[in-house]
Design a binder for these strands. Structure first.
Lengths: 355, 355
DNA sequence: TTGTACGCGTTATCAT
DNA sequence: ATGATAACGCGTACAA
C-alpha cells in the first residue's frame, strides 16, 4: 500500500526530466503496457514471453534506449559485464599489445576490462583475488608468469572462467592461447645455423619457467645438437629483462669469446646483449650476430634493427578474450585452447657466414 | 513487522556459513551493537560518531573483514565507480606509464578505469562518446592530442568532470596536469650550450601542437637566441614518431652538416635521429650529440644511453586522477590544475665540447 | 503466460 | 549523536 504509492510518485517524478534520466525497467514496462517482470524476461529469457508482447517490449527498449543497470543486477548477483586481465605490467609493451587485443574484443561485447598489474608480486595477486571475491567479475585472462599451484587455488575459489594467454598450466586444463615456444626456439637456432654460424650461444629465460624459459631453451638445444653445434655450456640464464641480457652476454663472452651468434629469449635481453657488445666495440652483426624474441615495438628502432621471432601478441590477446567469452556464455563446456603461429622477422642483426 | 521477521531470518541464515559469506553492514552493526546507520557513518564520515562507538565498529570491521559492497553503493548514488582514460595508444610506453599512475589511484578509490585507445582517430573518439552517453562513467581523463574544439563539445554533452593530463586547453578552463614545456625546451637548449655546442639543431613536434610542439620549440629557440647560437632554419618538424625523427635528421644533416648537437622533442624521434647518424657512421656523441624528451623505458637501453628530459609521467597520471576524484566528489568546484617538475637525465648521448 | 512484491547492501533523510 | 526506514534497479519465487 504505502509501497505502491511511493512507486507511483517515483515514476511520476521521473517522467519530467526524461531524456536526462536513464530509463529503467519500469519505464519500459509502462511504455509497453506490461509488467516489469515481463520486461526482465524479454531481456534475460526471451523465449519465455509471448511473441506479441516481446515485440512491444523490444520496441520500447529501442525507443527509450534502455540498458540494464549493471549495479542493480550486480547486487542481485549476476554478471557484471567486466572481465579482468591479470598481467605483470601494462607499461611493458609486450603486455600492452596483448591487452589491446583483449580490450578490442571486450568492447565488441560491450564489456569492460579491468587491468591488474601484478608486478610479478604474489602479494598483489592475492590482493586482487580478495577484491574479486567482493566485486565479482565474469572471467579472468591470466598472462602473468607461469601459473603457480596456489594461483590456481585462488582461481578455483572464485569459481569463474579463466583463460591463459601466452602461458599455460601443466597440471590443470585451463584453456590457453600461445605459440609453440619449443618450435620457435628451434627455428631461431636453425636460422643461425642456416646462416653458417658454428659457435652459437643463448641467453635463455629461467629454466624454471615452463613456458618462455624451458621450451625455448630446449627447442634451441635440439636444433644445435642436430647439427652438432656448440651447446649446453654456451647457454646462460636471465630473467627476460634488459640488465640480465647485458650481464648474460658478459658471462657468455667470458667463457666463449669465439661465439659468432647469440639467441636471446626476449628482445629486451637482446638489447642488453647488443649494448654489451657495442660497448666493447664488437660489431653487431659483423663479429657477433644477435637474434631476439618478441618483436617489441622498439626492436626495429635500434641499430642494427633486430632480427627476432615475432609472437602474434595482439591476436593472442584477442583470441584469449574470445575463448573467455565463449566460456562465460556457456558455463558448462570448457573451450579448447589454441596454438597460434610465430614468425621470423629478418632484419639486420644476423650476418650470413656462408659466403 | 513482517519486515523485521524477514530480516532476522536472513541474518539467522547467514550466521551459519560465516567465513564464506561476505559480511555486510548489518553484521557489523550487530556485532558492535549499533545501528547500520552508525556503521555507515563510521565508514563514510568517521568524525560524526562518538569515539567509543567508533572504536567498537572499527574493531568489528577488522574482525569480520568487512568491505562495502560497491554494487550497493553504486546503485544508491548513481556513480558507476568507473572513470575513463582517453589516450592515443596503451601500447605506447609513455601513455602506459601515465595509465599506471591513473590506475593506481583509481584502485585506491576502489574504482575501475576503462581504457580508450583513440589511435589519434576522431571517429573512434566520438564512438566512445556515444558509448559513454549510454553507459555512464563518473569522469574522464583526457590525454590524447591537444584538446580540439569539437572534442570539448563532446565532453560538454556528457556533463561530467574532465581533466587533462600532459596536455591543456587554450580556450576552456579544464584542469590540467603537465610540465612546463617551454621551460623544458629552454633547459634542453641550455644544456647543449653549456656543454660548448655552437651549432645546434632541433627536431620539433608539429608547430600546430600547442602543448608538446610549439612550447618546446619556442623554449628551445629562446635559449639559443640568448647565446646567439644557430637557430630558426636549423629546426625541422616531425610527428613525435620514430620515422619522422629519422627523416628529420636526414633533412637537418643535408642543410647543416656542421651541426654538433640536436634536440629531439621526443625520445622516439631521438632514436630515429640516432639511427640515421649511426647508419651514416657518424658517431654519437663524439661527432653529433643528441638529447631527447620523455625518458621512455628504452632510452637507457640503447647505445649510447640517451640523455633526455624526463616527464614525471606516472605522477602526471596519478595527479590527474586525484584531481578528477576531487571534482567528482565535489561537483560544483572545479579543481585547479598543477604543473609538475621535469628533470634532465644525463646519460651518454651528449658530449662536452668545452675541454 | 503474466504480474506482484520482496530482497540484494548501501546511503540519505528524517525523527528522536 | 543515533536509529529507523525509504529508495536505488533488478531478478525471481510465488501467486494468479
Amino acid at each position: 500500500m504505502k509501497y505502491n504509492k511511493k512507486k507511483n510518485k517515483c515514476n511520476g517524478n521521473r517522467e519530467r526530466d526524461y531524456g536526462l534520466m536513464n530509463p529503467t525497467i519500469h519505464d519500459i514496462a509502462k511504455r509497453a503496457n506490461v509488467s516489469i517482470s515481463t520486461v526482465s524476461r524479454v531481456v534475460n529469457n526471451p523465449l519465455a514471453v509471448r511473441e506479441e508482447k516481446r515485440q512491444r517490449v523490444l520496441e520500447a527498449i529501442k525507443e527509450l534506449g534502455y540498458e540494464p543497470n549493471p549495479f542493480a543486477s550486480g547486487l542481485r548477483d549476476r554478471l557484471t559485464k567486466t572481465i579482468v586481465a591479470i598481467i605483470p605490467d601494462i607499461a611493458n609493451p609486450f603486455y600492452a599489445s596483448m591487452f589491446r587485443g583483449i580490450e578490442d574484443t571486450a568492447r565488441e561485447q560491450r564489456n569492460n576490462v579491468m587491468i591488474c598489474n601484478t608486478d610479478r608480486n604474489e602479494e598483489r595477486f592475492f590482493e586482487y583475488m580478495r577484491y574479486f571475491k567482493k566485486k565479482k567479475v565474469d572471467g579472468i585472462i591470466f598472462a602473468s608468469d607461469p601459473l603457480k599451484e596456489h594461483y590456481y587455488k585462488g582461481f578455483e575459489e572464485l569459481n569463474i572462467p579463466v583463460v591463459l594467454a601466452a602461458t599455460k598450466s601443466e597440471d590443470h586444463l585451463l584453456p590457453y592461447v600461445k605459440i609453440d615456444d619449443y618450435q620457435a626456439g628451434y627455428d631461431a637456432g636453425m636460422f643461425l645455423i642456416r646462416n653458417g654460424h658454428k659457435r652459437i650461444g643463448m641467453i635463455s629465460g629461467p629454466k624454471s619457467d615452463p613456458i618462455a624459459g624451458q621450451p625455448r631453451y630446449e627447442g634451441f638445444l635440439a636444433s644445435l645438437k642436430k647439427y652438432e653445434r656448440l651447446a649446453d655450456d654456451s647457454v646462460v640464464f636471465g630473467d627476460f629483462q634488459y640488465d640480465s641480457g647485458y650481464s648474460g652476454m658478459g658471462k657468455l663472452y667470458g667463457k666463449h669469446p669465439d661465439l659468432t651468434a647469440v639467441f636471446a629469449a626476449s628482445d629486451e635481453m637482446a638489447l642488453g646483449a647488443m649494448a654489451f657488445l657495442q660497448r666493447r666495440n664488437i660489431d653487431v652483426p659483423r663479429q657477433v650476430s644477435v637474434i631476439g624474441f618478441d618483436n617489441i615495438r622498439f626492436s626495429r628502432m635500434i641499430t642494427p634493427p633486430l632480427t627476432t621471432i615475432s609472437q602474434p601478441i595482439y591476436e593472442i590477446g584477442k583470441e584469449a578474450a574470445m575463448l573467455l567469452y565463449d566460456w562465460i556464455e556457456n558455463r558448462d563446456t570448457i573451450p579448447k585452447g589454441k596454438q597460434l603461429q610465430h614468425e621470423l622477422i629478418v632484419r639486420d642483426s644476423v650476418s650470413n657466414r656462408n659466403t
